[in-house]
Nucleic acid binder design. Structure first.
Lengths: 129, 129
DNA sequence: GCTTGACCTTCCAGTGACTGGAGGCCTTAT
DNA sequence: ATAAGGCCTCCAGTCACTGGAAGGTCAAGC
């Protein structure tokens, strides 16, 4: 398979696949013409990475997860720790965003949104702390 | 006021304040020795920026909001549009994170987290699509 | 007057995870 | 033979800072 094929089958842009090779997540073989030649195993790794990234894991998390995935002697506790830490970060992020959402919703609701200059949003942003 | 004073009073790191000058959000005066000299008005702008950033507005949103803030002939509709668009992006982001949270919670709960290699998290990531 | 330490300055590089584009080689179909 | 499309590398840009190096300035204490 060339890069276009694995791109289609993994859903990852070719650019991203090249980037993953550059940072050492995958190591596809090369044909004589310099083209990357992907085996099924490479595709499988890319699909793994695509799903891990879709769940919001960082690249370094992905690197660790992939290493564990390929290590038959792993302890599931190591996987779980990575996932739980990531889950906590997501929950913290949600909390932050919810706080912003609450404030913004109030402000947007309070703003007339007409041609007049008076605006509770700007009043809030410009208030003395 | 020197940069350290406005940093303390606005809560923004000195580095960030210099950066805001570099990208044209503020234009503090300069003393003969080259030090930035901040007026109360500069501090007020920085506090405005700090609050807008804390609500998650992008720098370009902040630039637009600041321009509206200083424009007596503004229409509140323009402010409201920026805020509402931003609110929608936040809500979309929350939805994305919640979906991740749901999946991750399931996976973490399903994983024993012990010394054995068997792991539902990795099984999920490595499943054939 | 000198030193010390806390400020302040600019400039450069790095972050994360790509993404876009230039310039050029390779393959396939007409 | 040529044109289209796929592949290659390398460089730059994204966003909003952040860290650090190298050096100028200022106030206090000896």
């Amino acid at each position: 398979m060339n890069i276009g094929d694995v791109s289609d089958r993994s859903g990852l842009p070719a650019k991203t696949i090249r980037y993953y090779e550059e940072i050492g997540l995958i190591s596809p073989a090369r044909d004589d013409n310099g083209y990357r030649r992907f085996a099924e195993q490479d595709l499988h790794k890319l699909a793994f990475l695509a799903r891990a990234r879709a769940l919001g894991f960082t690249i370094e998390d992905c690197r660790a997860l992939l290493a564990l995935y390929e290590d038959d002697t792993r302890a599931s506790a190591d996987v779980k720790r990575i996932a739980r830490d990531h889950l906590h970060r997501i929950e913290a992020k949600i909390d932050d965003l919810r706080a912003m959402q609450d404030t913004l919703t109030e402000l947007v609701d309070a703003c007339a949104g007409d041609a007049r200059p008076d605006c509770p949003i700007l009043r809030d942003l410009g208030r003395k702390a």
